[in-house]
Design a protein around this nucleic acid. Structure first.
Lengths: 150, 150
DNA sequence: AATTGATTTGCGACTCAATTGCATCTGCAA
DNA sequence: TTGCAGATGCAATTGAGTCGCAAATCAATT
């Protein structure tokens, strides 16, 4: 069954409660929206999706998204169009759970424009940094065609 | 010797002439500025740097930068602050020429904020894409401390 | 050297994602 | 139930990047 906004609400509530922070309607609604998406969505995507079930101010959506990132529940991806996109930290196109936290790998489809999270990232980097450079964080971005558009 | 704006002008002129396109003052000045930088610079960085030797309209700088990218002379990097940064295609922190295909690997220093291009990128990707996904382009971004800030 | 015509540049106005300030509201604990 | 820190809504603002158009510039040709 495809996950929908409504079926995600209980899980969203539980997830937010687990943080120990305040449980608010906007937080539940935004997180449920994020959970219902199988790819990274922009702030505007979220506002549009929310308008149907739970309309709220754009600024609130920005702030909730930012809060979710600060809680480690979601992460932010810089798109080629200068628009942030957001995605659940654990979500993957194949539905597997997240096992590694060191690196992010994203795949953006040139045709439909959707961005997916990839797992199976090996800790071995294909690049050498110059002497004296110290790597702390890695972000790998692929572009091409997703399975749906191929 | 540290490359400066003035010493880069002849090389910039030659590079632009080699494209067969029109040789204009703004193109020379922007390219020389890019050549004088050992790291990726933003549009605003370029405008500020140019103000000293060759002030020009900020829109022109945008257009020249874009033109340099379309000519393959420079490339564009999406920063974490939603600002594009530009860099000579061949420039590397160690001065070596570009030899490999695994497109771009960049290193951004968390302390000074500068972005460098990395070479020695192997064509082996540390990630498996799901079945049906076809990778066309790759962009690898590292964050950490550069040699100067370590 | 002057003419011409296509490109490029400068300037102003504009777009749009994202942010900020502030008054009001709300979740939660006492 | 109440108090209040923290969250939300709304309006205004910021700042990178873009667009339209008139004026300037490059380079090919006479």
């Amino acid at each position: 069954m495809k996950p929908t906004y409504l079926t995600r609400i209980p899980a969203a509530e539980a997830h937010i409660r687990a943080t120990g922070e305040r449980l608010t309607q906007p937080r539940v609604a935004v997180l449920a929206t994020l959970m219902a998406a199988d790819h990274a969505i922009s702030h505007l995507d979220a506002v549009d999706a929310l308008a149907k079930h739970h309309p709220m101010d754009r600024v609130t959506v920005y702030r909730v998204l930012e809060w979710l990132v600060s809680m480690g529940i979601a992460h932010r991806i810089a798109g080629d169009d200068r628009v942030w996109r957001f995605m659940l930290t654990a979500a993957k196109p194949n539905g597997k759970a997240n096992t590694q936290h060191l690196q992010h790998a994203h795949f953006t489809c040139n045709d439909c424009g959707q961005t997916f999270c990839l797992d199976e990232v090996s800790p071995k980097l294909p690049v050498k940094v110059p002497a004296g450079f110290k790597t702390i964080d890695v972000d790998l971005k692929l572009r091409g065609q997703c399975a749906h558009c191929a």
